[in-house]
Amino acid sequence: MKGFILSFRSEFYKTRKTAGFWSAVILPLLLCLLLFIGFYSHSDKLAGLPGIMLWIQFSGAILGVMGSLLLPMLIVFIAYSVNSVEHKADTWKTLFSLPISKLSVYSAKFFYALFLVLLCLALFVLFTIGFGNLLGVLKPQLKFSEYSMASTLTQLYFKLFLSSLGILSIQFLLSLLFRDFLKPMGIGFVATITGVILAANKWTYAYLFPYSHPMLALSILPHHGQAPASPGMPVITIDMFTKEILVSLIVAVTVFIAGYFIVLKKSVK
């Protein structure tokens, strides 16, 4: 456990100045800021909408891209950057000749990638809520204050996080095994497009394909407001553990364990 914590801290120390780390911070900030500017400049057109619709439009604009393309590609990039630090510096051999167990080194790296994805998604929630409320303050005619989206958004993004674990584990392993960017990137890109097509066409077995999961995870969105808890305050219910989430978790655990045995067997070049 000590080895794991030390390795995890070292992962942060090594990557804190790299694009991989900062992309997880800057991407949500930038997207939310752009959206904020968009809403701010079009506030007249949006003035009449009820609070809940404003929130759905505001957060949905990001979630739409996130689920289909952005999140899988971000994961491809994060998984690559966490591993490329070692590929570039030729440091796998040093990592694996330290007096730290291979499981600690391997799992610390994996969980660090996982942490970056979680960080990025948490910042999306934070910035969406923050900028939404800021809009409500700066343009009082936008009735953001009418409705609180915080818990729904948190649940949605958490579901998105769970749905992304399958992709993360696969991309992580690919980036660990392949030195160059093109292979994991190419495979990730093609698989993501395939995933989007499968999910968009509502193929029956799309839930078995990890790269379809983020999009499937969000497909409850149109059914908002089914069960109003109180009049004028519709509630969006989110079914957290749908079958694609379960498949995603199973894939993540399986690939993670398989990856460990590959690392054990693999000769370090």
Binding site: K14, V85, K88, A89, T94
Partner: peptide, 9 residues
């Protein structure tokens, strides 16, 4: 081992 393993950044 071989070239020193150093993080260049």
């Amino acid at each position: 081992i071989e070239q020193p393993a150093i993080y260049l950044h």
